[in-house]
Structures are given as C-alpha cells and as structure tokens.
Amino acid sequence: MKMAVISEHLGLSWAELARELQFSVEDINRIRVENPNSLLEQSVALLNLWVIREGQNANMENLYTALQSIDRGEIVNMLE
C-alpha cells in the first residue's frame, strides 16, 4: 500500500531515487525502455526491482532515508 503511494508521488524523481538506491545507469535506462509512456509505471518498476534486489533488507526505513536524501521528504511525511 505504501509503495503505491510512493509510486504515485515520485513523478520525475523516480530516476533520482534509483540512483540513490544504487541502481546503475543501465538499470534506469532499462526501466525507461520497458515502461516508456508512464512515470507511474517507471516508479512501480523501480520499487519492484528494489524489493527483489534487497529481499529481506527492503524495508521502509531504508526507502524513507533514500527519499529524504533526494529532498522528497514530503512523501515520507504523507505516510507517517
């Protein structure tokens, strides 16, 4: 549920979040190519990849820290 809210509000910031979460330029470009027409779909794809990559370590605290690092703390505030 929280992931959906984050995806809805990320907009163009999804790529900046991807870099903050240590995704490569290739990963970011692949997300763009696979989801060409929708920032929402790109955001969802990023968060899904992050959960798959991090497994047990994919917790909201880590995601909140990354969001705050890219000056998107207002998204965190909405969810708390």
Score class of each variant (00 low, 15 high):
L21D: 02
L49F: 09
K2L: 07
L46N: 01
N77V: 11
N35I: 05
N29F: 06
V5H: 08
E74P: 07
S7H: 01
E54R: 05
Q56P: 12
R30D: 10
N77I: 09
E16D: 14
E34K: 04
E26D: 12
N48K: 15
L39Q: 14
I75M: 08
A45C: 07
E20I: 10
A45R: 10
L46C: 10
I31L: 10
Q68P: 02
V5E: 06
H9P: 03
Y64K: 05
A58G: 14
N37C: 06
R53P: 00
S7R: 04
E61W: 08
G73H: 05
N59Y: 11
Q42T: 02
M78Y: 10
S24G: 08
R53Q: 05
N62Y: 13
R53D: 03
H9Q: 14
S13P: 01
M78H: 09
S38F: 06
S24E: 12
S43E: 00
K2E: 15
I31C: 01
E54F: 03
A45Y: 04
L67K: 00
G11I: 02
L67S: 01
D27K: 04
S13N: 05
N35C: 06
V51N: 09
L67F: 02
L49E: 12
M3Y: 03
L12H: 15
V51S: 15
N62W: 07
A4Q: 12
A66C: 13
N29C: 09
E61S: 07
L17Y: 05
N62A: 12
V44A: 15
L63I: 14
P36A: 13
S69W: 07
L17W: 03
R19C: 09
N57E: 15
N62F: 14
N48H: 12
A15T: 13
E74D: 15
V51E: 15
I31M: 04
L46K: 02
G55S: 07
S43G: 13
R53H: 02
Q42D: 03
L39H: 05
M78F: 10
E54K: 07
L10T: 03
R30V: 09
E41I: 04
R72E: 03
E26V: 08
S24I: 04
V5Y: 15
L47M: 14
A4F: 08
L67C: 02
H9I: 03
S13D: 15
V76A: 05
V33A: 15
N48L: 01
L12Y: 11
N29G: 10
E8Q: 14
R30A: 08
M3L: 15
D71Q: 07
Q68S: 09
E8D: 07
S13F: 06
A45T: 11
G73D: 04
V44I: 08
K2P: 03
I28K: 03
S69P: 05
R32A: 11
E20W: 06
Q22H: 05
L12Q: 08
R19M: 13
N37R: 09
F23Y: 05
Y64E: 06
S13Y: 04
Y64I: 07
L17K: 02
Q68E: 11
E54D: 07
N62D: 15
V51G: 13
A18D: 00
E8T: 09
L79W: 04
R72F: 02
L47A: 01
D71P: 05
L67V: 02
R32T: 10
V76H: 05
L79I: 13
I28W: 02
N59R: 14
E74M: 00
V25K: 13
G55A: 08
R72G: 04
V33G: 12
E74A: 06
N35P: 01
I31R: 03
L10K: 04
L40A: 11
A15Y: 15
M60H: 15
I28E: 03
W14Y: 01
I70V: 09
S13W: 04
E26K: 12
M78S: 10
N62M: 10
I28T: 05
G73K: 07
V25S: 13
V44N: 15
E8W: 02
I31W: 01
V51H: 14
E8I: 04
N48A: 05
A18G: 11
Q22C: 13
V51I: 13
Q68L: 13
R53C: 02
I52G: 06
M78P: 03
L47W: 03
R19E: 14
L39D: 12
I28F: 02
A66W: 00
M78E: 08
W50K: 03
E74F: 02
E80G: 15
D27Y: 03
E34C: 07
V44L: 13
R32W: 07
V44P: 00
L47E: 01
S13G: 08
L67N: 01
L79M: 14
E8H: 05
Q68F: 09
